[in-house]
Design a protein around this nucleic acid. Sequence first.
RNA 1: GGCCGAUUGGUCAAGCGGUCAAGACGCCGCCCUCUCACGGCGGAAACAACGGUUCGAUUCCGUUAUCGGCUACCA
Length: 484
Amino acid sequence: MTMVKTRFAPSPTGRMHVGNLRTALYSYLIAKHAGGCFMLRIEDTDQERFVEGAVDIINRTLQYAGLSYDEGPDKDGGVGPYVQSERCKAGLYMDYAKKLIESGDAYYCFCTKERLDSLKTADGYGVYDKHCLHLSKEEIEANLAAGKPYVIRLNVPEEGTTTFNDEIYGDITVNNAELEDMILIKSDGYPTYNFANVVDDHLMGITHVVRGNEYLSSSPKYNRIYDAFGWKVPVYVHCPLITDETHAKLSKRSGHSSFEDLLDQGFLPEAIVNYTALLGWNPPDNQEIMSLDELIRKFDYTKINKSPAVFDISKLRWMNGEYIKKMSPEAFFEKALPYLNKAVPDQSIDRHVLAELSQSRIETFEDIADLIGFFAEVPEYDCAMYTHKKMKTDPALSLEVLKAALPVLEAADDFGNDALFETLKSFAAEHGWKNGQVMWPIRTAVSGKEMTPGGATQLLEILGKETSLARIRAAIEKLAAYVG
RNA sequence: GGCCGAUUGGUCAAGCGGUCAAGACGCCGCCCUCUCACGGCGGAAACAACGGUUCGAUUCCGUUAUCGGCUACCA
């Protein structure tokens, strides 16, 4: 039994959206579930698409997500990712390509772009005609000596079929005639993804190749390379696509696609990881909230779905809320503090009180601003808000209540929640009003909001006597003008 | 165009020939309650279509439809 070894092999082209994250996660889970090894390999063989800083994004994302890799070249005292461009400089891929040329499984191709284009039909289809396969040894030598640009192509038989097996999708068979003699080494000397991927996976002892569904139909041709070398084909695990709500491929435009964007929007990394894991897989016991350790324990890649999944931000929000509620008050406080300070700069209002009010009521940290912003300032509101069917009240009655309650509150010595509640309760009874008929207008007056965390008297306590009274007086004026 | 793949409620997703077709999010209603949230209870909502195979198809096969992928000196 060989050790399970997986890798995450992204191209550094910028974003790291949840689709990529999930591929990394599944890779990691497969390895860890089996007590195996997980590694990172940067596939940067396309110099043109390379984006500066993209490797850092990948590293950061993996780190925040908790997916640490445990093998790689030494770097800054720890392990770094394998980088294909660096391996390329050592001539690694070229050496392997030449082995294939020697064995007759690959050949030099000197065809120009013009000739290649001429092979295609009007609508742009057509496979390479193996023209250079038939070049004589002398012709090849001459071309090489003349410094003519060349690529190295794999020699795929024109007849027969190739079958490869995917753990999720089963056997897939294609006619070899469909398979073009794919390019292994490009004219710039770099290997193609197709080739570097196979060589590295083999050299690194990758046992399970986890990648996106977009590679599914091109996988048979990878098998041809493995066969040409006589290498053992790894287990393939192709993951279903993740789409946005319009069923289109996830893109930057949908606004919630990148891991770091999500973090900026006040999502917790654990929640994102947890939610992402459930896009395409779920555990037999139906548990949805799972830590990374639980995911490792329960993950079974053979149960990954075949069909694409829609990334549903509302379910992620729910899950994030669950994670927030589970946080210890201290942890929540620390994480929420910057948002609290931004929403309510006035430090005379206790941060811990605000935090406590928020924890069970938000789904992302960005919700805090809208939730408690009124403590800083009463928002513009419409007096129609004083009308409430269930509370059996309206602007006119509210005005009456507030006018009558004002002196009572002014006279209150104890502005604590309990005392205020008792006071207002008896105040309501004296006037023959229901509690709600008193509480609703007061709460509305001091908050300007239809919904608030905490009840009327709680808000009064937090706001303090001076501010509360000022807000009630302002409300009375506003209401008087409204009722006319 | 060719090849490959996918198709259970709005979304995620159980199911692997016989079920009143799980569960979760969202939505709606009720309870709790000085509003909201939390919590509790309940509700509406699905097997893409048509043919086979079978005593019996969501489940197996085929056709069609729809969606997606590949068909690059991109990954």
